[in-house]
Structures are given as C-alpha cells and as structure tokens.
C-alpha cells in the first residue's frame, strides 16, 4: 500500500507544480514507484513541467468516469521508468470529478505505487478539497511572504477538518516546504526567516528551496529540476526533502548555487 501525499498551498504561483514534479522525480530516482496526479482541471500544467504535454491521451476525468482504465491514462516518464503521470483534463468541467470517483482512482493508484502525489489546484474550493481528500501526508508549499503564509494557515486548517483522515478523527501528517527562499535577504531582515514562518504555522519543516534561476530553466526544458540539473541548489534541496519524506534524518541546510569550496562555505545551516 502506497502513501498518498498532497502538495498544496492555498495561494497560487508559490511552486506546487514545480515541487510536485521535483519531489516525484527525486523519490522515483531513489527507486520508489511514483505517480504524480494533476488535480488542476482546466488549468493543467504538470504535464508541461514534466515535458509530457504531447503524450497526453486520457486524463483523470476519463478514468474517474470509467471511460479509460488507469493503466491506459498513465504516462510513463521517458527518463525514469519508476515515474508516471496522470494528467488533468484541460477541456472538461471539474464538476465531472466526484468524491467516490476520485476515491476509487486513488485507491487503485495506492495499490500500484509506493507514492501517489496529488498536485492541488490553488484556492480552497472543490478542486483543492478533492486533491487533499485522500491524503496521508501533506506538503504545504509556502513562500516567505505574508499572503502566502496566511493562505497556508487556512489550508492547514482545512487539512485538519476536510480530509478523510480528519473525518475519521485521525491526523494528516503535515510538512512545511518553504520555496523561493533567499537566505541573504532573510539575514538582512528584508524577508521573513524560515524560523518566523515555522513559528507562525507550527508544522514541521520538510525543506527550504532557495530562489534560483534553475527552476525556470528546468520548466523551460520540460524537466523536473531534480532531473534537469541534479547538482543545482534547488535540486539538492528537493533531494534532501525527498529523503526526509522517506523517513531519513537529514540536516536542514539552504544549498546555494555557488559551486565548490565557496558554495560549501556559504551553505548555511539553519535548523
């Protein structure tokens, strides 16, 4: 039985899709069987970030409605054969997704994969609720910025009340992933520090992804940053986060893009 993980945030544009692709690829590279599922019906983008946009035949709604089997809709990654994608529908109405249908598809994916990673749409509406519904673990993606932190707080409240685990009186394991972090600006008090965000949201830290040009470069190329440039700072941060998800204890550092000796010198320990 695999684990179901939702990547969520409330606010748009903070890096949910980037993080879904990067964590999915990092887990798959360590030998785990991973499927990433795009829940952003009508605004799908995970296929594009993963470079599979021309290979989409069937989508999540087709599978939910029984028009296609899960195996038919899954797109196997060309770079890592333990990584698969289930795209969202770009044209259909999201009302076509039912609770029961989604539960059934997730249950089937759980049987086949070690990790089922659900990429949530922004917002707190139905789409976001469907994405988090079956989750055992939630990765809350947050930028060190006031509106993102506020929206994450809201989403944490929903994870504690609107998921199947919550309805049964159980807990969803929640983790904070701080993205677009600039340690220099944080030191100069121009940006919220990770400690501030942790204190306000009070959920454990999964990782800190530094602001980096590599993220845009990877999405331009249609490749998760952990595959496109595994030695880059954001990729190393995502690999560390993936290892923590697998239960390993890894010191939290903010990797920097500076190379070699200087890079190690400035790789600052924060928690």
């Amino acid at each position: 039985m695999g684990k179901v993980l939702v990547v969520t945030s409330g606010k748009g544009g903070v890096g949910k899709t980037t993080s879904t692709a990067a964590l999915g690829a990092a887990l798959a590279r360590s030998g785990e069987n991973v499927v990433v599922i795009d829940f952003d019906v009508g605004l799908r983008n995970l296929d594009l970030v993963m470079g599979a946009e021309r290979r989409v035949v069937f989508d999540l709604i087709n599978v939910v409605q029984g028009d296609a089997k899960l195996a038919q809709a899954l797109i196997r990654d060309k770079r890592i054969d333990t990584l698969s994608l289930l795209p969202a529908s770009q044209t259909r109405d999201k009302d076509a997704l039912t609770n029961e249908g989604v539960d059934r598809v997730i249950a089937e994916a759980r049987e086949k994969f070690d990790w089922v990673i659900c990429d949530s749409p922004a917002g707190i509406e139905r789409g976001a609720l469907l994405a988090m519904r079956n989750a055992d673990i939630a990765v809350v993606v947050t930028n060190p910025e006031v509106s993102s932190v506020r929206d994450s707080d809201r989403i944490i409240g929903m994870l504690d009340s609107k998921t199947l685990h919550a309805e049964k009186g159980e807990k969803v394991e929640k983790h904070l992933l701080v993205t677009r972090y600039d340690p220099g600006r944080a030191t100069r008090n121009e940006m919220l520090k990770v400690e501030d965000v942790l204190e306000i949201l009070s959920i454990p830290l999964l990782g800190i992804i530094p602001e980096s040009e590599e993220v845009l470069r990877a999405s331009n190329m249609g490749s998760p940053v952990t595959l496109n440039n595994p030695d880059s700072a954001p990729a190393r941060a995502y690999f560390d986060a993936a290892r923590r998800l697998r239960g390993e204890t890894v010191d939290v550092v903010v990797p920097l893009d500076r190379k070699g000796f200087i890079g190690r010198l400035f790789g600052r320990r924060v928690a």
């Binding site: 910025e145 006031v146 932190v149 506020r150 707080d153 809201r154 409240g157 009340s161 944080a186 100069r188 008090n189 121009e190 940006m191 919220l192 520090k193 501030d196 306000i200």
Partner: peptide, 26 residues
C-alpha cells in the same frame, strides 16, 4: 528602512490569531 520582515511577522501573528478564532468558530 530595510527591516520590513519583522513588521511582516508581527502583522501575520496578529492577523492569524484573529482569523483562527473566527474560522475555528465554525
């Protein structure tokens, strides 16, 4: 002039204390 982060932290703490109580009202 550049120390805007502590302001952000304080504003968030006040705001979220309020919002949590309102939403927790349910």
């Amino acid at each position: 002039k550049n120390s805007s982060a502590p302001v952000a932290r304080d504003r968030l703490q006040v705001l979220l204390a309020h919002e949590r109580s309102v939403i927790g009202k349910n």
